[in-house]
Write a protein that binds this DNA or RNA. Structure first.
Lengths: 215, 215
DNA sequence: CCCGCAATAGTGGTTAACCACTATTTGCAG
DNA sequence: CTGCAAATAGTGGTTAACCACTATTGCGGG
């Protein structure tokens, strides 16, 4: 029995490349492809492959969202995330969710094969480039000290509102957006501000804009 | 004689995909590949292909830089830019430099073939997706584009104040900082806002924080 | 000499965000 | 069932930023 793999990436050319590489192997085969997150989910549920190679950024559902959904449904499919994002928080989240591999799209083709082989043997594979990049940039990339823990204390609704604030929407606009009272939005603002230990006028807006990349 | 094409992209898998697609054609062949801008330049100079398909973002030299260099040296190679960037200014610059094709990486494979065929016939090809995207987003995505000219219209004092605003200081703090009245600071705020064609509460603060890197 | 511009300063009004409360409903864990 | 957390909604007040004016000083070019 060949090692059954599903691949998902919203760039058809990239998907093509991956498919050819995998199908060139004697011991593996591509049993499904998808161009967006939702299709990826459906394909994986249908096929229950041994491995899914997912792009991080995809329409409908992100690669990580797909991972989360599948893993929460207790299937044994393993995941390799293929991305161009070097950012620590993506990597951290992927590791937390429990992906088995994480590599950059600008890595060599050989690395993808090595990763697949490593994951097939039940081990985790992380691109050495990522590791070195993170160690070099960790000081820079870690700016909001303890932010991760603070962010974890936010409720789902609060996170949504924080994102909308980062888009520099007013309380009224946010209220219209998610169909609640502007007063409630103000309440959430106050709660978020307290949890993030901010103070002063516009402090939340400043924070949201500045760290909108990692929310 | 086959249509001779050089491809350059820093993602090996993507490059692989493109190469396979082109080599699958009877009337075209890949005569060179590069993983960064400098190699791309050297390869094109060596081969003088009919067409070069370039990624926009590459190490050493961007795809557009390569175009500029080659075109300034009066070679007849045509260029297709393949990118994930929908931003108007990239597109504008590419058109100004004189590329013959511009398409997004998330376009279908067929589109790349259509683009190559169209360019081969001497016509320009622009992805329809780009065009529709630009018409939809043109108003939103405009800011950093003509910003340079706008920034040039600011007086020295206004630039200083803009920087202080970017540091998210209040009018009072700025006033204390440069020893003028907070009213005057408010005046400058208004003038800057007008010159930058901003409007609405906190719009200046948002702008200053977001573009603080280029002030 | 006058004109325009930059910089300075002020007045008065509007508004969005913040601050500090109280209060109700819902859903989940113990 | 009970109690807590989250989400919802409201009231009342403060303040910083914005908006729209007017006004003065000083400086350089026509």
């Amino acid at each position: 029995m060949k090692y059954r793999i599903v691949i998902a990436d919203d760039h058809p050319i990239f998907r093509n490349g991956i498919r050819d590489i995998i199908n060139g192997l004697a011991w593996a085969e591509v049993v499904g492809e998808a161009g967006n997150g939702l299709d990826a989910y459906k394909t994986i549920i249908n096929q229950i492959p041994d491995l899914a190679v997912l792009d991080l950024e995809m329409p409908m559902l992100s690669g990580l969202d797909v991972c989360k959904k599948i893993l929460s449904e207790k299937h044994f499919t393993r995941f390799i995330i293929l991305t161009m994002h070097k950012e620590k928080h993506f990597f951290d989240e992927a590791m937390n969710i429990g992906v088995m591999g994480y590599l950059l799209k600008d890595n060599a083709i050989d690395e993808l094969l090595t990763a697949i082989r490593t994951v097939k043997e039940g081990k985790q594979y992380v691109s050495p480039l990522i590791e070195s990049y993170l160690t070099v940039h960790q000081a820079v990339q870690q700016l909001p000290d303890g932010f991760k823990e603070l962010h974890a204390t936010l409720t789902p609704t609060e996170k949504v509102i924080l994102k909308l604030i980062a888009q520099s929407k007013t309380s009224q606009e946010i209220a219209d957006n998610i169909f609640i009272s502007p007063n409630t939005v103000d309440n959430h603002r106050a709660n978020i501000t307290r949890k993030l230990k901010l103070e002063g006028k516009n402090s939340l807006l400043k924070f949201a804009i500045q760290y909108s990349g990692m929310l």
